[in-house]
C-alpha cells in the first residue's frame, strides 16, 4: 500500500485516535472536577513531555523503517554519567560534551549495526540497550540514583522553569516536535527517510543513500534521548538509571503506534506522535485524578495499545499474501 492510497482514506487511525482524545478530554472535563483548568492542562502536557520528546524521535526512526529500543537506556546512562562527572568536579560544559558525545557515539554504533551489518533494528537496539546499561553500570556509574549537581546553570531550567505559564519541558517537546516535523517533511533527509521506510530496497536502487541516512537517523535519536534525559533529570533533581528497567520504552512505542505510525515504516508523521502523546497524557492524568492504582493503569494502558494495533490491522490489513518474512 502506498502513501498516496492511505492518504485518500477518509478514516485514518490518527483521526480515530484524535476523536477518542477529544471524547476523553470532553468526558473528563465534564465529569472530573478540576480537570479542565489551564494549570491542569499544562500539567497534563508536562507529565508526558519526556515521553513525547522520546516519541518524536522514535516516530521519525520508525518512519524510516527502523526502531530504537535503546533510547531509554541511553538517556539514563549518558545523562547520569554527565551528572556524575559534574558531581565529581568536572566543569559543566565539558561533562555535557562527554555525555552528549557518548550518546552520539552510541547512536552511530546503532546506525552502523542496523545499516551496515544489517542486523534487524529491533534486535540490534535491544542488544545495545543491554550493552549500554551493562557498560554504564559496570564501568561508569556505581549507583542507581545520581543526584543533580547544584551548579548546572541554565540547563537546570530545562526541567524546572516556566515561560509564559508553560512548563519548560512542554516547550522543549514542542520545539523538538516542530523541528523534527520540519526536517521530516521539508528536507532531503526527511524525504529519504520516508522512502527508506516505505521500501528499503527500492530506495537503494533509486539511489537514496540508505545507509548514511539510517546512521544519521539513529544519531538524531541518540541526541534527542540525551536531551530528554536532561529534561527528566532536571525535573526530578536526579537521574535514576533503573528507569531502563521500566516499561518506558514500550510506552514510547505505544505512543507512536497509537498515533497511527505503522511499524513497517514509511507512513505517518510527527503530527501522529503528538496526537498519540495527547491521548496518553489525557488518559494518565484522568487516571491519576481518579486515584486509580498503577497496576490497573498498566492493564488499561495495555488494552488501549491492543485496541490501537487492532485498528491498525483493520486499516492496514495484512494477510498471508502481503506479509513478509521477518515482519513481526
Amino acid at each position: 500500500m502506498t502513501r498516496a492510497v492511505s492518504r485518500k482514506r477518509l478514516i485514518t487511525q490518527e483521526k480515530i485516535v484524535f476523536a477518542i482524545f477529544v471524547l476523553l478530554f470532553l468526558g473528563f472535563s465534564l465529569f472530573l472536577p478540576g480537570f479542565l483548568t489551564a494549570n491542569n492542562v499544562a500539567l497534563l502536557l508536562q507529565s508526558v513531555s519526556v515521553l513525547g520528546i522520546l516519541s518524536v524521535a522514535m516516530g521519525a526512526t520508525i518512519i524510516a523503517g527502523a526502531i530504537d529500543l535503546s533510547m531509554v537506556a541511553l538517556m539514563a546512562m549518558s545523562v547520569a554519567w554527565a551528572l556524575q562527572l559534574v558531581n565529581n568536579g568536572m566543569p559543566v560544559p565539558l561533562a555535557m560534551l562527554i555525555g552528549g558525545g557518548s550518546a552520539i557515539l552510541v547512536g552511530i554504533i546503532n546506525g552502523v549495526l542496523v545499516a551496515y551489518v544489517e542486523i534487524p533494528p529491533l534486535f540490534a537496539t535491544l542488544a545495545t540497550a543491554a550493552c549500554i546499561y551493562g557498560f554504564g553500570r559496570f564501568g561508569l556509574i556505581s549507583q542507581d540514583t545520581v543526584y543533580l549537581p547544584k551548579n548546572l546553570g541554565w540547563i537546570a531550567e530545562l526541567g524546572h522553569g516556566r515561560v509564559y505559564g508553560l512548563p519548560m519541558p512542554v516547550i522543549v517537546f514542542a520545539v523538538l516536535a516542530a523541528a523534527i516535523a520540519l526536517v521530516m517533511n521539508y528536507t532531503k533527509f526527511g524525504r529519504f527517510a520516508y522512502a527508506i521506510g516505505d521500501n528499503r530496497a527500492t530506495a537503494r536502487i533509486t539511489g537514496v543513500p540508505v545507509r548514511p541516512v539510517l546512521v544519521l537517523q539513529y544519531t538524531v535519536s541518540a541526541i534527542v534521548a540525551f536531551i530528554a534525559g536532561l529534561v527528566q533529570a532536571t525535573a526530578i533533581n536526579s537521574m535514576n538509571t533503573r528507569i531502563t528497567d521500566t516499561l518506558l520504552i514500550y510506552e514510547v512505542i505505544l505512543v507512536v503506534v497509537l498515533g497511527g505510525i505503522g511499524l513497517s515504516g514509511g507512513k505517518g508523521g510527527i503530527r501522529n506522535v503528538v496526537v498519540g502523546t495527547l491521548l496518553i497524557g489525557t488518559f494518565l492524568n484522568g487516571m491519576t485524578i481518579m486515584n486509580i492504582q498503577f497496576t490497573a493503569q498498566n492493564a488499561i494502558k495495555g488494552l488501549i495499545l491492543l485496541t490501537a494495533i487492532a485498528i491498525d490491522q483493520v486499516i492496514n490489513p495484512r494477510d498471508e499474501q502481503t506479509s513478509q518474512q521477518g515482519d513481526i
Binding site: L122, L247, Y250, I253, V257, L263, N298, A299, K301, G302, L303, L305, L306, I309, A310, D312, Q313, P317, R318, D319, S323, I328
Partner: peptide
C-alpha cells in the same frame, strides 16, 4: 487469526 503484529501484541500481553 486476527493477524495482529506479534511483537506488539505479545508486548501488550507482557504488560497486562
Amino acid at each position: 487469526y486476527f493477524r495482529l503484529r506479534a511483537f506488539l501484541t505479545t508486548l501488550v500481553s507482557l504488560i497486562t
